[in-house]
Amino acid sequence: MSGRFTRLFHRLENERRGALVPFAVLGDPDPEESARRLAILADHADALEVGLPFSDPIADGPTVQAAVLRARAAGTTVERGLGLVAALRRTRPDLPIGLLVYANLVHARGLERFYAAAAQAGLDAVLVPDVPLEEAAPFARAARAAGVAPVLIAPPNAPDATLAGIARTGGEYTYVVTRKGITGVGRGEVDPSRSLIERLERFAAPPALLGFGIARAEHVRHGLQSGARGVIVGSALIERFATEPDSVPQYLDELRAATVLPPR
């Protein structure tokens, strides 16, 4: 499957750049403002990862949890969240967009129907953070059948067998976790493991996007030096929207400037 993420990685390879991928919770702080923010993110980044608000986000730290609560309180349902993606897709036909969604929202609608709706909304990839490789087969099958790439998470403690499975099962990109724990900034050192990325490459896994705790230009540079093809910025961005919303475009531009790779 060659989707928008794959084409982006090819293009960036020629430009000698890594991808800057902001993460946002759909409907945060409310659906209208969320639509406006998604457009800003799309203008200042290479691709997006968006999350559907769920009542029990066990892989997320306080910042994303708070965003999820705001979005739900403002009436963001699965339907409205996917509607925000569909609206964005209409104006950005080439933007790679990945979705993060907890398993029960997929399960409740039925796997086939959920992935069909995701494809319909214009999503390229879907990551289910509470479905590890050993439970992933039915989700991945339904995703592929709908023409959506299943994305898996590679954490620092994954054994080779798991990385090999992620390589076989996943598509478009691999979400590489830089450290133990949950999403958020300042919860521990960002330590992108070169060896983890090298192992993934050895198994020919989809390109690595680095996540968890990335907030500053130096994190971006370190991440890309470790061999990742891009970085995902979530909690730091959500905090920035809360404290200095006007500085978000400039902040993204600074991070994006750090995605330029040193000359070969």
Binding site: I58, P132, L133, E134, E135, A154, N157, A158, P159
Partner: peptide
């Protein structure tokens, strides 16, 4: 680290191990 019980601790269609990969 291969699971000892391939079915991941199923009780019929219930059970399993739906956690972030890092907890496996």
């Amino acid at each position: 680290t291969a699971p000892l019980i391939p079915a991941c601790g199923r009780y019929g269609e219930f059970g399993g191990r739906y956690v972030p990969e890092i907890l496996v």
